[in-house]
Simulated scan of single mutants.
Amino acid sequence: MPVHNLSTANLINSLPKAELHLHIEGTLEPELMMALAAKHQVTLPYSTIDDVRLAYNFDNLQSFLDLYYLGASVLRDEDDFYRLMWDYLCKCKEENVVHVEMMFDPQTHTERGIDFAVFMAGFTRAMAQAEKEWGQSSLLIMSFLRHLSERNAFDTLTAAAPYLPMITAVGLDSSELGNPPEKFTRVFAKAKELGLMRVAHAGEEGPPEYIWSALHDLDVHRIDHGVRSVEDGALMKELVSRQMPLTVCPLSNIKLCVFDHMNEHNLLTLLEHGLMVTVNADDPSYFGGYLNDNYHALAAHLPINKQHIKTLASNSFKASFLSEEKKSHWLNQISNFDAD
């Protein structure tokens, strides 16, 4: 039976949702960062948790990435990666995020001498436990760091070979400017040969041309971010025609100065032009909110109604790598919520 008379806030909290643009290393909360630093005797330039939070003021993507990689340096053993993943999946349970497709950055760890065996064991142990305890659905996306070389990406894909049954897709993240998608055309072609799905960050800091390149050179199934697509009318038509999903991250866009204020965000414009827009948290510890926080921020600052919210939640499943049967299950669940 339909659920009637839910407020906008309750609808956001109650709807089943999928999250498709989430960097697991970006869920590292200051408390866990400091605890693991103490555990491993890692020296950080912070004395207290408040000092860490004060550092979460970014001028641009690079200033965030500098802190992001520093934070990741405290992740050393299997239990660290298990705890990182477990804490995030518990948050999903709280927020009714029933399916997640999480990005992880192996090069961030292998460059520190930490083997795939260490982080993959920690991640998959937490994922299996969450699935067993409350039916949490989750998939992994292995992201290449675009500021590193094509050769490094190929080496990472080779090192991942024993773990490919645990990995659904490859992605492309890190510093966008100066590192266009076509730099990794051959790596993505190899990933496609191996049966992996493909996503790529484009059109956040980078121009619309980067979105075109992700579509044509990388043959992606989703564009991560993509908010600058509005600058190119032909691109907008292409994205609508393909129903190419955009995994938009509102709080991230504000924190990284893509938009000055949430009331300037173009998510509603993208949605009303017929694009397959989804809402995601990106790096929630650093950007001030998990998935529901992003929905609530949009509702507070844009003229978004309950039907928009239902559409965004539905899009999150349509754009996912779930089976058609599982997509239909969750889409039916959403249709039982009365948006009036």
Rank of each mutant, 00 (worst) to 15 (best):
L36R: 05
K190W: 15
G135W: 07
S143Q: 05
E176F: 04
P162Q: 10
L70F: 11
D219Y: 02
M276G: 00
N315F: 05
L218F: 06
P245D: 00
S138H: 04
H225F: 06
P162T: 00
F104K: 02
K318L: 11
Y163T: 11
D66K: 07
M120T: 02
V248L: 13
P303L: 13
V258K: 00
E19F: 05
G203Y: 01
H23W: 07
F184I: 08
Q129P: 00
P30G: 13
V98N: 09
R198P: 01
A72H: 07
S47K: 10
F119V: 00
E25Q: 08
E176K: 00
M142K: 08
T27L: 10
L291K: 04
V118S: 02
K318W: 07
P106E: 10
R186W: 15
L172A: 08
F321A: 09
K132L: 14
L67Q: 08
L28A: 06
L251R: 01
N57E: 12
L196H: 03
E101I: 11
K93E: 15
S73R: 04
F259Q: 08
E133Q: 13
E205S: 02
A55L: 04
L267G: 00
S73E: 09
K318T: 09
E111G: 00
R186H: 15
T247D: 03
L251P: 00
S14H: 08
P250S: 04
H225K: 02
E101L: 14
E324W: 02
C257W: 10
M262T: 00
L172R: 10
R186V: 09
Y290H: 14
G171P: 04
G135N: 03
N96A: 10
V74N: 09
N13Q: 12
M236N: 08
D66F: 08
V258E: 03
L145Q: 08
V98A: 13
A169D: 06
E31V: 06
I211S: 05
Y68I: 05
L331P: 02
S7N: 07
C249N: 07
S143K: 04
S335W: 12
H221Q: 04
F321S: 07
K310S: 15
L312D: 02
E205P: 00
P284I: 03
S138C: 15
E272L: 14
A117L: 05
W330P: 02
N294V: 04
S213V: 03
I49F: 11
Y46P: 01
L331K: 01
R186G: 14
A55Y: 01
E238S: 09
T43S: 13
G113K: 02
L54G: 03
Y56C: 09
V170I: 14
N315D: 06
H201D: 06
L32Q: 14
L145E: 13
L139I: 03
P16E: 11
A300E: 14
C257R: 12
S149W: 12
E264M: 08
D80W: 07
D260C: 09
L32V: 11
F81W: 12
A281S: 15
L70T: 09
Y295V: 04
Y46V: 02
N292S: 10
S314G: 11
I49P: 03
M85V: 13
D79S: 07
M1F: 12
